[in-house]
Amino acid sequence: MSSPSALEIVSRPSTERGHADHGWLKTFHTFSFANYYDPSHSGFGSLRVLNEDRVLPGTGFGTHPHSEFEIFSYVVSGELEHRDSMRNVEVLKRGDVQLTSAGTGIRHSEKTFGASPVHFLQIWAKPRVSRLVPKYFTRHFSDEEKTDKWVKVVAPVEAEGVLDKREGDGPAPVQSGVTMYATLLSEGNSLAHRLPLDGQGKTRKVYVHVVQTSGYNDGSSSGARVKLSGEGKELELREGDGAYIAGLPERELILENVGEGRAEIVLFDTE
């Protein structure tokens, strides 16, 4: 994207994302991932991966290595069992956010726990420095906390209110320039997001994603629809859709639920 003086909004329709149905795994890739490659969608700022995964019971991602990425899981429904080489074993449920700062290298597995499929977002960000000591964090954010307001679920370690602790209140800490927000926006309600000042006047980057809470690849006209607007520009998103937004600091983006039922939305503000 260019460096606009005003707000710029560019659609990323779900129908154009990378997609794979492996039977046990149904997944959409917002950015290039695995066998899906599109040079026009290979990341955005520090954000490198945004996958929306559904995994059947009794299956999952077996033990595999990672390094030099910060990997976080945002659980939408079901239960996800995490195990890693740092001896962390945890079952994550709706509202849980789990962050692994892989650094110099870890091995982990993520599998469905229980009798129901798990639906979660898998997100990767690139840290500002390499060769970090691996760390693990979990946070929980209730539906009540997220209803009709933004909750900051991940933020840079130096940001105000961020605690570098395995568990606790507030956002999980990252060594990248990504801040992740989440909301459950009621039908007819709206929220604003103001692109933050960074002291340097640089163009800010935002990515918005509407979670597919009504079902996998539903494709119907029902369910959540979210209108993005700012500085005379508008774009409507359905579940699974996303949008790239760029603009100078202090520009304001409005998100309005214009569809049926509650909309679950995540927003990434990245340098």
Rank of each mutant, 00 (worst) to 15 (best):
N35S: 13
L92E: 06
V10Q: 12
A6D: 14
R12C: 00
F28E: 07
S14F: 06
L56H: 13
W24S: 00
H29Y: 15
R12S: 05
T30Y: 09
S3M: 09
I9C: 04
T27M: 02
R17E: 03
S14V: 07
I9L: 06
T100D: 04
I71P: 10
S32T: 07
G62R: 13
G23Q: 08
R12L: 08
H64G: 01
H41I: 02
V55K: 09
F69E: 11
E90D: 14
L92F: 05
N51E: 09
G18E: 11
A20C: 01
S101T: 13
R87Y: 14
P4N: 11
R87E: 12
L50D: 04
H64F: 02
S67G: 04
W24Y: 02
G95W: 15
S14C: 04
S3K: 11
N51R: 05
N88H: 07
S46R: 05
E16H: 11
M86K: 07
T27C: 02
I9G: 02
A6I: 05
T30F: 04
Y74T: 01
P39L: 08
G23A: 04
D21N: 15
P39Q: 13
S32E: 04
G62I: 03
H41D: 09
K26P: 00
R87P: 00
H22Y: 15
T59V: 02
H19S: 09
A102S: 14
F33H: 11
S14Y: 09
V97I: 13
T15N: 13
P4K: 09
N35M: 08
H29R: 13
T104H: 06
L99N: 07
E70H: 06
N51M: 06
D21R: 06
F31M: 08
H29L: 03
P39R: 11
H22M: 06
S14R: 08
P4S: 13
V91S: 10
T104K: 15
T27P: 00
V55Y: 12
G18K: 06
F61K: 07
R48S: 12
E70W: 04
G62C: 01
E52G: 01
L7P: 00
A102K: 05
V89N: 11
E68S: 09
D84M: 05
H29I: 03
F69G: 07
L50Q: 05
Y37W: 10
S2T: 15
S73T: 14
R87L: 10
G78N: 12
S40G: 07
V91H: 05
D38C: 03
L47S: 03
G105W: 08
G103Y: 09
S11M: 05
E70M: 06
P39F: 01
E70R: 03
I71D: 10
G18H: 10
R17H: 14
S101H: 02
N35D: 15
E79P: 01
R54E: 13
L92M: 09
